[in-house]
Nucleic acid binder design. Structure first.
Lengths: 203, 203
DNA sequence: TGTAATTTTGACCACTTGGTTAAACCTGTT
DNA sequence: AACAGGTTTAACCAAGTGGTCAAAATTACA
């Protein structure tokens, strides 16, 4: 049964996602989202009540798409070095496909930190499993002594930061050459895991 | 000669810096800045014409305080490993004193990327000097083969990201314990340089 | 086909915000 | 004391904002 509204709600949602992710909550206008969806502004309120509600819907959906794969990777039962290579490769790959996500997150983090933590935990990331694996490897003498927290933050930093700071880094050390920076990011899929493993492997 | 305005302009500037750095341009209100400075809103326009001009004044000042020390460190003529230790320690220290700066920058980066690159170059950061030093060490066989760009972005990532993502990381892996996270950041002053040098040192 | 229910629209509202202005207020000078 | 300069203020304005509403258009259904 095709209802009268042939995907109106979905069109609003997609338009909102585009605009919100690109500009963040405070720089996005309801009017702009309506235009992007090709309809009247009042419809956004008809379907989603308020800007805040619409934003929450978008934000939850983005989290739901981004977090579970990470959770799954962290808990996968494969050797540590393999796992690091796997996570870095997949994570950077997904950031290459969605390069605005880090800034979108960082902005929302400031606005509402606790909510994000709760969503992340809801979708199942339990860093303790990964921590345990790291500690086991340390005890087994396979990697150097390092705080698991330091290691995982290092991994995150190395993956995410180049996307958040792209405009400046690209301007400073890549003569603003977009292709060069894309290539740079592509190579990081291997470089970052090499860098990490090099650092923690026991000689 | 003490004029009638006993530092009014400076008080505006300080108030604006506080508010802008904490909330970013778009979430800051002129009224709020006026309140913080304890004066009438019209005075902000009397001294700085517009919100944008006031923001530029603040932004330039912050850049002027943050960039030159980095430029100086990058060009200092000391051995590479020492330099890495020096930069990481000083940089993280300065971020501990000004933890909102990374988010402030990342937000402004999106708004006006090219302007930032120009300011940075104006204040004298020339990464080429550092790149040359890295390439020399590679040729001399002291460190492994690595793209200088990858290395410097790794260094930046490891220093800056934990401040930008603090609320989430603190919530996820430090049970939202502020003191634990402060301690974590403090330890990174040594951990990050160890991590980097471990990775690039030739065995 | 006629009617009720739902969806869509344009006009509108209340409020916020950056910015302006004319008048009041110093403060130093004569 | 009176004047002249810059400084400070309260009141105001225009534009933009999220949100509302009644009427129009469309769809579902008897």
């Amino acid at each position: 049964m095709i209802k009268g509204n042939q995907g109106t709600e979905e069109r609003i949602f997609e338009a909102a996602k585009n605009v919100f992710v690109k500009k963040g909550l405070n720089n996005s206008r309801m009017q702009e989202i309506a235009q992007e969806a090709g309809m009247n502004k009042a419809l956004l309120h008809y379907y989603y009540r308020s800007k805040e509600k619409l934003f929450q819907a978008v934000f939850n959906s983005v989290m739901k798409r981004v977090i579970p794969p990470i959770a799954e990777m962290l808990e996968k039962e494969i050797p540590l070095f393999e796992k690091i290579e796997f996570i870095v490769d997949r994570y950077i790959n997904s950031l290459i496909s969605n390069p605005q996500i880090p800034v979108f997150f960082i902005q929302e983090i400031q606005r509402n930190p606790q909510q994000i933590v709760e969503i992340i935990k809801k979708y199942g990331i339990k860093p303790e499993v990964f921590f345990q694996q790291i500690e086991n490897e340390i005890k087994a003498g396979n990697i150097i002594d390092i705080q698991p927290q330091q290691l995982i933050v290092n991994l995150l930093s190395l993956c995410v930061f180049p996307f958040a700071a792209r405009p400046v880094v690209q301007g400073m050390i890549f003569e603003n050459d977009k292709k060069k920076y894309d290539q740079f990011l592509f190579e990081r899929k291997k470089e970052v895991s090499k860098f990490i493993i090099n650092s923690i492997r026991k000689k």
